[in-house]
Design a protein around this nucleic acid. Structure first.
Length: 271
DNA sequence: CCGGACGCCTGTCGGC
DNA sequence: TGCCGACAGGCGTCCG
């Protein structure tokens, strides 16, 4: 489910409730996530204070005194703040109980999410060390995409969804950014000029920032830390709009499978 | 090295 | 109404 804006929305919603708190208890109700949750993690985490909540790519990083908890929301995960205890429901797999009495509850029907413990300063976890730049960082520019894309024959859509190229861009925002930039999603990454990559980089950043401002996109089950849906669904230009008129030129939005993912675009104004 | 296909899971929806 | 296949916001792994 969540792409970068949904993870960032979650981070912002959760941080005020956890930073400065001590974890009185971690409850693991189901260890069977994407990777089994490490045995004994409860003992490691219990008693430690949370110093900060960061985000790297689509991972949430709870910085603690002796290391970091790294949480991924997978395809269907969400993390909510509970201000007082409430009985767990189906698919409520994790709970971080805080000294304030509040808790963070992780719900994930498909269990594609994950929870890891990174001891100490270990910033070089195998899942983190090959990641590309953050799309909202200064150094993410069209020139970077242009030089990295040189010679690549894969579609530009797969290219920008590749986390070793740039992180955080999933299926929705790849479609949206390509529409804003006027680039056809199936065009080979190596056959796009510097100017158009500049436009694409700007479009990626703009779309992600707008989505963050709207609290993310809710299609089915995404909710922010307070349980609220994301309102960027209202602002989607092409995603999920097959057959409806393109907002720029009124031609019908098309959908095609590209690398196993539904890809929405306007054949009239994306080239 | 690169790119595409697969599989992990559960829930939902559309068609028959 | 019930069943069945397709599909869903991610991503590591495997194979050609």
């Amino acid at each position: 489910m969540p792409e970068l804006p949904e993870v960032e929305t979650t981070r912002r919603g959760v941080a005020p409730h956890v930073v400065g708190q001590v974890v009185s208890r971690l409850v693991v109700r189901d260890r069977r996530l994407r990777w089994p949750v490490q045995q004994g993690l409860e003992d490691i985490v219990g008693g430690q204070a949370v110093l900060a909540v960061d985000r790297r790519a689509k991972y949430l990083l709870f910085r603690m005194e002796r290391g970091s908890l790294m949480l991924h929301l997978g395809m269907s995960g969400s993390l909510r703040v509970l201000l007082e205890p409430a009985p767990p429901r189906l698919h409520d797999h994790l709970e971080l109980i805080l000294s304030s009495g509040a808790s963070l509850r992780y719900t994930d029907p498909r269990r594609f999410g994950s929870l890891h413990w990174l001891p100490g300063e270990s910033a070089s976890h195998p899942l983190l060390c090959r990641l590309g730049p953050e799309p909202l960082a200064e150094q993410f520019q069209g020139d970077y995409l242009h030089s990295l894309g040189r010679g690549r024959r894969s579609s530009v859509k797969s290219f920008i969804m590749d986390a070793s190229v740039v992180v955080g861009v999933g299926n929705i925002y790849a479609c949206e950014a390509l529409h804003v930039a006027g680039i056809h999603p199936a065009r080979a990454a190596g056959r796009i000029g510097r100017e158009r990559y500049q436009r694409l980089a700007v479009a990626i950043r703009a779309v992600l920032e707008q989505a963050i401002a709207a609290g993310g996109t809710t299609l089915r089950d995404f909710v922010g830390a307070g349980g609220q849906p994301g309102y960027f669904s209202q602002a989607l230009r092409v995603y999920g709009r097959a057959g409806e008129p393109c907002l720029r030129c009124a031609a019908p939005v098309r959908v095609q499978r590209l690398a196993q993912r539904s890809t929405y675009y306007c054949a009239a104004c994306q080239h």
